[in-house]
Design a protein around this nucleic acid. Structure first.
Length: 528
DNA sequence: TTAGGGTTAG
């Protein structure tokens, strides 16, 4: 490049830099005229760094991370805001690898991480294998003198909670000079996460200022520590409640199988004129499914439509699951078909629902479609398709799918899959094959396996093998109700009435009741 | 122009 050109470029570059001097200062310090050239070519003055960053942020806000990444890669001059925005995009896209790579590149390029950078990176690493880096990032925070930031502090507290380091997280909190309500809230939920309910309560009690999040963190913490009644008593003390606090309490009841309490609370929420959102509806639908109430489920579905709740893949999956569990599989298919986006859980719900309704062919058809749509099956998918084959008597298809698990999809069959296969062979009357499979299993058979075999023996009146399975069950759990009822049935069918009476006597002594099959219709009445 | 603390499914 000729000297004159170089001088001109450098002049233009300096002029451009005056648009945002603070952002450009690291570049001025470390870059030469080649960078000026690059900037001149790639970023005409109409596209200065501020407008590029704004565009980048807009893409990130709209969940268009790949577009943001393209723009970011094209930006020949970046500032710390550009890097932070890109990191936020990768964090939102749940791409911790990407965040790690971007963060490393940022540092290699000589940029100094800011409070924004640290809190974004730490949050991206939560719940991932990258959380081993928390203490290293903490060391960097100390070196960069960012320890006093409440944002960095909150992120570090959560990071240390994620790796179970109670001492470190309380030390981080202590070292924040001007603690705010958010950092205290982070401390409350982190103690709760580690099961330290007393510590969490103590922090909450001494907080100089509490907001709705502080209260909700406490409620949520008690729920996660299985203290549902304590959670409710805190919840009742809240003077102000919002959609999140209502949802936390409702979903807490659902997690604890207290479906009627969840539905009662949902009614209270509506009475208080709080507006449910997709989080609330997912939990409420789960409660309807839990008590098999189609009527309530339908009413909740109507409310979703009436309120114009925006489509959400999780909420719609809960709808599919609710309809399937409440006996209306056609409605489940209808909701499923109307979903613009489906994920693995959605597919598993419809496949599992079909299987439970005895619709083996439809279940397998959905499985094929799922593969065609490019969704990779997981272990739940295979439990569902194998049980569909079992209910449909499709032995060969089941065998083929079972063998394809490892070979085609890289999924190692677990004990549940073996139980499905034992059930599949057993129902079809192929008890020998079932027994052979158990013998060849790569792990010790559990109660579920033996119960599947015993069930098959009951179905096909196989006394010898049935007694063997019963003995194995007894070794693992000596009061399993299936043992006595099934053996009593087999003996009855063979006319060995003494044994039948003996089993009935044992069942009476041990207060064992034959488990009755539940009926959807029955539970409809129960709820009214 | 960039960040934190409480909520959902098989």
């Amino acid at each position: 490049m000729r000297r004159l050109e170089r001088t001109l470029l450098l002049k233009d570059y300096r002029q451009l830099c005056t648009l945002s001097k603070a952002s450009f200062s690291p570049m001025l310090d470390t870059r030469g005229s080649d960078h000026a050239r690059l900037y001149f070519d790639g970023n005409p003055p109409s596209r200065n760094i501020l407008s590029c960053n704004r565009m980048l942020a807009a893409h990130v806000r709209n969940d268009q991370t790949p577009i943001a990444q393209d723009l970011f890669d094209q930006m020949l001059v970046k500032d710390v805001v550009s890097w932070n925005t890109m990191l936020t995009g990768l964090q939102k896209a749940k791409n911790p690898h990407g965040v790690n790579r971007c963060f490393l590149q940022m540092r290699r390029d000589g940029f100094r991480p800011s409070e924004y950078t640290i809190s974004t990176v730490l949050n991206a690493f939560l719940g991932t294998a990258f959380n081993v880096l928390v203490s290293q990032i903490h060391a960097l925070v100390v070196r960069l003198a960012l320890s006093s930031s409440v944002f960095v502090g909150s992120a570090l507290i959560k990071g240390y909670a994620d790796i179970g380091d109670q001492i470190a997280l309380s030390r981080v909190f202590d070292e924040i000079p001007m603690k705010d309500v958010s950092s205290s809230n982070a401390l409350v939920s982190s103690y709760m996460e580690l099961g330290c309910t007393l510590e969490a309560q103590r922090v909450f009690d001494v907080m100089p200022e509490r907001n709705i999040v502080s209260w909700t963190s406490l409620v949520s913490g008690y729920i996660n520590n299985k203290r549902i009644n304590k959670a409710r008593s805190v919840f009742d003390k809240m003077r102000e409640k919002n959609v999140v606090s209502w949802t936390v309490m409702i979903s807490g009841y659902v997690k604890n199988q207290k479906f009627m309490d969840a539905l009662d609370l949902f009614l209270l929420m509506l009475k208080s004129r709080a507006l449910p959102n997709h989080f609330t509806f997912s939990s409420v639908l789960d409660a309807c499914a839990g008590c098999s109430s189609l009527i309530l489920g339908q009413q909740v579905h109507s409310s979703i439509l009436k309120l114009g709740t925006p489509e959400d893949v999780i909420m719609s999956t809960s709808l599919v699951d609710m309809y399937a569990k409440c006996g209306d599989i056609e409605a489940a298919f209808c909701v499923f078909g109307s979903m613009p986006r489906k994920n693995l859980v959605t597919w598993n719900s419809i496949i599992g629902g079909s299987a439970r309704h005895g619709l083996a062919t439809r279940a397998l058809d959905k499985f094929e479609r799922m593969i065609k749509c490019g969704v990779r099956p997981d272990e739940v998918t295979f439990v569902n398709v194998l049980s569909a084959c079992g209910h449909g008597g499709m032995v060969e298809k089941g065998e083929k799918l079972f063998n394809s698990m490892k070979a085609k999809f890289g999924i190692e069959p677990n004990v549940e899959h073996y139980a499905c296969m034992v059930d599949l062979y057993g129902r079809a009357g192929n008890l020998e094959e079932a027994e052979k499979l158990i013998q060849g299993m790569p792990f010790q058979p559990d109660v579920v396996i033996w119960v599947a075999l015993l069930g098959a023996c009951g179905l096909h009146s196989s006394l010898q093998l049935g007694e063997f399975a019963a003995k194995e069950i007894e070794k693992l759990r000596n009061d399993h109700p299936a043992i006595y009822s099934t053996l009593s049935k087999i003996h009855g069918e063979r006319g060995v009435w003494d044994s039948v009476l003996e089993f009935r006597k044992i069942m009476k002594e041990k207060h064992i009741q034959k488990q009755n099959a539940g009926s959807w219709v029955e539970s409809q009445y129960r709820i009214r």
